[in-house]
Structure formats: structure tokens, C-alpha cells
Simulated scan of single mutants.
Amino acid sequence: MALALDGGHPVRRHDFPAWPYHDDTERAALIRAVDQGQWWRVGGSEVTSFEAEFGEYHGGTALAVTNGTHALELGLELLGLRPGDEVIVPAFTFISTSIAVQRAGGVPVPVDVDPVTYCLDPATLDAVRTPRTRVVIPVHMAGHVADMDAIGAWAARHDVVVFQDAAHAHGAVWSGRRIGDFGTLAAFSFQNGKLMTAGEGGALLLPSAERFDEAFARHSCGRPMGDTTYEHRTPSSNYRMTEFAGAVLRAQLGRLAEQNARRESRWKTLSAALREIPGVVPQGRDPRCDLNPHYMAMAPSTPPRTPGPTATWW
């Protein structure tokens, strides 16, 4: 019997569930944001509350921003990336990982990914390191955490900074550690297809509260928290999240753990079915990855099917 992708008859009889998922929790959150009478994060409470809740969940101090790309750009700004500095990035990732480096004046240096997990392969790092290498950005592809043990050890040996791209990894856990437990910056995205979303949005996760004030000023046109005199301490930009997005994300965060557990359970069934398709090899798993939230079901196909990764969406 021919598969549907080869012209056969589809066996699926029902439409996929609508995404993003929402219910009266989001409606109540939006009404709460409207009724507080302050729709700007500086005067409202929704974004501040979301930052506290998201940071606690992930083991760090969160700063909410406009989107995941801006979270990467702001993180590189905080790290003091200079024009000409080299940043190692995986060759297989969304373009923002590279664009953020370029916009900061840096040079993205691509390296290969592990053929099982599709995350940055630590064995490739030595071959590309130069005296100008300042940062390495592991991407937790489709929710599978990159080998943070090996990447962190390599970076420490060579005085290179690790900056996690966790756009796919809300709630992910590696060897008992959450994204914020690795002592590095991490960038998250809340774009419409992400595991939790407000249509757009992002967060920069700091390993501690030590640099929050600096990060806040840099995301708010250089103005420190509580400023009423237009004191612009540093040149930067406006990456502030709205109160409406913050309210929706609080609702989305509230169901993340249950949704992640469901995806983990259903991946066993889906990956087994994908393996039955000739030439399709679903994303594998390092046993140290305790929780993969499965942003996508990654299943690259091999020739003679169309070459390249095929993202099967949930």
C-alpha cells in the first residue's frame, strides 16, 4: 500500500488539533491585563509576574523581550561581543542564530551537528576555534538539549562563553539540570508555533539576578528600572514586551508541564511509526536528556526521497 506522501490514501480521519491551544485562562488573563489600566510593562504587573514565574520554572532570572531573535541580540550585547569576534553556531538551525551574531558585528562560524540528536556536535569545535572565538551557541534542536557537559567543558578550557539558544526547549532537562542551571545566558522564543506562545515574544534567561538591572536597561532604550527622568545610561534599543503578551504567556506557562509530559509519552508512538517508513530516521536521543519537550518531530529522510530535514509538526 502506497504511503500518502507517495500518492496513497491518507489514513488520518481527523484534523490536527488547533494551535496555539487556548481556553478561558487566556481570555481571563487578557481581561485582567486590560482592567489593570496600565498596558505598558513599566506600569503594569503581568510581564513582571511572568518573568518571575518563567525564571523560577527554568532555574534562572528571566527578562521578557519582544521575540527570540531580540533575546539572542540582547544576550550578545550583554556579553560584549565586538565586531570581528567569532561565534560558533550549528550549521543546522533557524537563521536567527546566525543573524543575531551578524547584527552584533560578529562572524558566525558554522559547525556540523550530531547525526542522532541534530544538536551541535562538540567533536567539531576544535577544528574551527581561532584566537577570535568568543562565544559558542548550542541550539537545543526541536527540544533535545545539546551535549552541555562536553560543550561546557570545552568552553571552559578555551575561555569561550556558552550562550544557549533554547527557542525550542521550554521546560527541557539534561542530567537533572534545567536550562537555567548551566550558569549561562539562554534565549527563548514565544513565536506562534513555539511550545508556549503569545504570537510573538521572547525571554533572555540570566543565570542569576546579578546582571538583571543592566539587562533591563539595555532592553528599555538604556533606561534603568524606575527611571522617570529619561536617564539613558547605555545605547541600546526597545525590546520591551507588552502586558497583553505577558498575561497570555502566564496562562501558557501554567499548562506547559502537562503538555510536555503528553508529548514525551506520544513521541514513543510517533517515532516508532516514523521508523516504519523506508528512508525516514526520526531524531534520536541521548540518555542524558531527561526531558525533551519535542517542539517538532524531526525526521530527516534519506535518498531517494527529497533530501534534507523534514519537520513533522505536532
Rank of each mutant, 00 (worst) to 15 (best):
S271R: 11
Y230C: 06
T184L: 06
K268V: 15
P20C: 07
F50M: 10
R157L: 04
V113M: 01
Q283E: 11
R177C: 05
R132C: 07
P304L: 10
G183E: 08
G199N: 08
Q191F: 05
A91K: 02
D112M: 02
G152Q: 11
S189V: 07
E73I: 01
V42G: 00
V280H: 06
L120N: 00
M296F: 12
A272L: 07
T124E: 14
D126E: 13
L74C: 15
F16K: 08
T124N: 14
A169K: 09
G37P: 06
G199M: 07
P282E: 12
E231L: 11
E200M: 03
A198E: 08
P224I: 01
G59N: 03
L63S: 00
D121N: 15
A100W: 01
S237M: 09
M241P: 04
E77G: 06
A91R: 03
A155V: 06
S237E: 05
P122F: 11
E26H: 09
E264Q: 14
R223W: 03
A217H: 14
T229V: 06
D24H: 13
I277R: 07
A272E: 15
P303L: 11
H232I: 15
P20F: 04
A166F: 01
E214I: 06
H158D: 10
A33W: 07
F92A: 08
A297D: 09
G84F: 13
V136S: 04
P108V: 04
S45E: 12
A215V: 00
D213H: 10
P304T: 09
R255F: 04
R305C: 02
T97E: 12
S45G: 05
R129P: 02
G43Q: 05
L30G: 05
A123G: 15
S45I: 12
A166H: 02
L270N: 12
F92V: 13
M241W: 03
S265Q: 14
V101A: 14
W154K: 00
G183C: 12
S271T: 00
P307L: 07
P278V: 08
R134G: 04
A62R: 10
L185C: 09
A203L: 04
A127F: 12
Q38I: 03
L125D: 01
N238Y: 14
A146F: 07
E214P: 02
F163H: 08
P138S: 09
R82K: 15
L120F: 03
G68R: 13
A186C: 13
D165L: 04
E86Y: 06
C221G: 06
A64L: 13
P115A: 07
M196R: 05
T197V: 00
D165I: 09
A33N: 14
A146N: 04
H168V: 02
A169H: 00
L81K: 05
A127T: 14
E73A: 05
R12N: 09
F188H: 10
C221S: 12
R288E: 09
V173S: 01
N238K: 01
M241V: 01
